[in-house]
Write a protein that binds this DNA or RNA. Structure first.
Lengths: 345, 345
DNA sequence: TTGAAAGCGCTAACAG
DNA sequence: CTGTTAGCGCTTTCAA
């Protein structure tokens, strides 16, 4: 008589069924060195016949868990979804399983989530746009292989993948300047934290904007509304800009959602886009591409970023001593119907 | 001399530091019966002083992993994001950590993901709109506590949380009929799988549409285009409906994204909304609420569904023998600018 | 109430 | 190339 079949099938069962040792089974499982083809075949067959599945928990106690944790600040951001797609695509053929931890808005929540992931012995972490202090990120990276995505500033402890936000801002300014615009304003995300300032994409976009304006000889025209990367921030920022003595002829919003808010304020003011004012966003989200909106926006290749992050992470898991790599991708500009040549000279 | 501090702090370290047994520490960790307040305090302090964190992997080998796995077919669906919010909010105060498995489009991918989650000894699973066979779901539920969200059909093995799609469709039909419409057409998602048919929300919406039309004495006006729940499906579906001999005065699309496709086809045909044709969607996604779109749509309370699912799951983890519960929530209608009274009598 | 000891399923030294 | 054995960090009987 068999034992009640509810018991989980273990490596011991497989070993017995295949008439080999548990070590042999383990080796086959891990594709490790030291197992003859004949033994491999026997074990594989036993695994198939018994429907055995290795317990990740048990593996984790000694070796790897074959689990990659991804921290994502906001599920609704479509750009982040692209990154996830890139990660899963890159990891598709491997034994790694991607698990996403939701709801990491703010430093405290981030800490909780990162702890939760390390508690679960994850083999590696991909942190998307984390806001934690650099010191904290370095600590994390020292205890578990880590790749940071979407945050500037290099570290000897972790690899990074970023998009060139300075270049992205320049794409917008150049595009608008080429269309004849001179009074190009910018709506930025107000950053309070000194240390974080230089590392966050929003700051880089503002810097890129200023740099590009200077390069185009428009230094005197630099005009910034400092609000936040939200719909409301865009609305308030645009209202602020429209209330200034010299009206801008173009607004570069630091994010698509900001641009949408700005569009609302512009419409309220009785102005037309792009007739009276051109508007450009950043992220090229689905909202920007959506027909009725048709927003000119900077496109970051999220899939590529995700794929690169996954690739770097796997390499680091394999060799934790390797030098850190910092990938910086180049954005492109998706020109749509919210930007046009300056009509009033 | 201390050992190199890279070593993980374990329950043994805590026990030694607090001068108690590991058993005692374990009890405190789990709030288990049989630990005096004095001991509790000592252990708590030692945990705090050492910065100890229990290893979920090790716990999983004997007890719980305190991990809830959520399977989600599509990261970009904002309705699913609401569900996730509800889950995490409900689980906020507990020790449970939510982990999301991405990329589960199709039966095969679902199987892989569910396996991955059970391999990791997750304490419970929340499956959102799964497409796997009912038999498979039942098997899964037998081996690990499971709650199925967004799929009709009850089971003795798992709890379910659904929105009343029949009622949702009726809301739309009644709203349009009250506005004077009689020729109300529907764009449905074509379902091939026989068994699945009755359990999927799309089928329920189509049924609800037909039921409501009959109830309003509009049986002769029933008009369905069978495509898919995609933007393209909406576009093609609307084109099909507009090519029929008797033009509909209103279109009920089975999902918001379908409605957007329909709007495009209607605009192409030179018709206006809601002047010539009213359009309603389903899901009340951000796109529907978005100003320039302003789509009338059925609102399902995703947060509530997620919260209910989490609540049921926790209860089932506590008592696997309890009778299954099937929660069915009632949708509401968000009336916006794409529906209006029939102008041509 | 407390603690000693036996695993959970797997991997990794180490012998054969 | 193969098998024996000792843990990984925790929970859980079972005595004391």
């Amino acid at each position: 008589m068999d034992k009640p079949s509810t018991r989980r099938i273990t490596i011991v069962d497989v070993a017995r069924h295949a008439q080999v040792s548990t070590t042999a089974v383990s080796k086959v499982l891990r594709n490790a060195y030291g197992a003859s083809p004949a033994m491999r075949a026997k074990v594989q067959q036993a695994i198939a016949e018994l429907g055995y599945r290795p317990s990740a928990a048990a593996r984790g106690l000694r070796g790897q868990t074959y689990t990659i944790g991804v921290m994502i600040p906001e599920l609704r951001n479509l750009f982040f979804a692209d990154i996830i797609d890139g990660i899963t695509a890159q990891l598709g053929g491997t034994d790694y399983q991607v698990l996403i931890a939701p709801g990491c808005n703010g430093e405290k929540a981030e800490a909780r989530v990162i702890d939760a992931m390390t508690d679960r012995n994850m083999d590696g972490l991909i942190l998307i746009a984390p806001v934690s202090a650099k010191k904290r990120l370095t600590e994390v990276a020292c205890s578990v292989p880590t790749v940071v995505v979407g945050r500037h500033g290099s570290s000897p402890a972790y690899d990074t993948v970023t998009d060139d936000d300075v270049a992205g801002a320049a794409l917008v300014v150049d595009h608008l300047a080429d269309l004849g615009h001179r009074r190009i304003a910018h709506i930025e995300h107000h950053e309070t934290d000194r240390v974080r300032l230089a590392e966050m994409p929003n700051a880089q976009r503002a810097e890129g904007y200023k740099d590009a304006m200077r390069r185009r000889g428009l230094e005197a025209e630099i005009d910034i509304a400092s609000t936040s990367y939200t719909h409301e921030g865009g609305y308030l920022g645009a209202k602020e800009l429209l209330a200034r003595p010299r009206l801008p002829t173009a607004i570069f919003a630091g994010a698509d959602v900001v641009a949408l808010g700005a569009l609302e304020a512009i419409a309220e003011a009785g102005l037309s886009v792009p007739g009276d004012i051109s508007v450009a966003g950043y992220d090229n989200s689905a909202l920007a591409a959506f027909g009725p909106v048709s927003l000119t926006s900077v496109d970051q290749d999220g899939r590529q970023m995700g794929a690169d992050a996954a690739r770097l992470l796997v390499a680091r898991i394999a060799d934790r001593e390797r030098r850190t790599v910092h990938v910086k991708l180049s954005p492109t500009l998706a020109v749509r119907r919210t930007t046009a040549a300056l009509s009033r000279p």
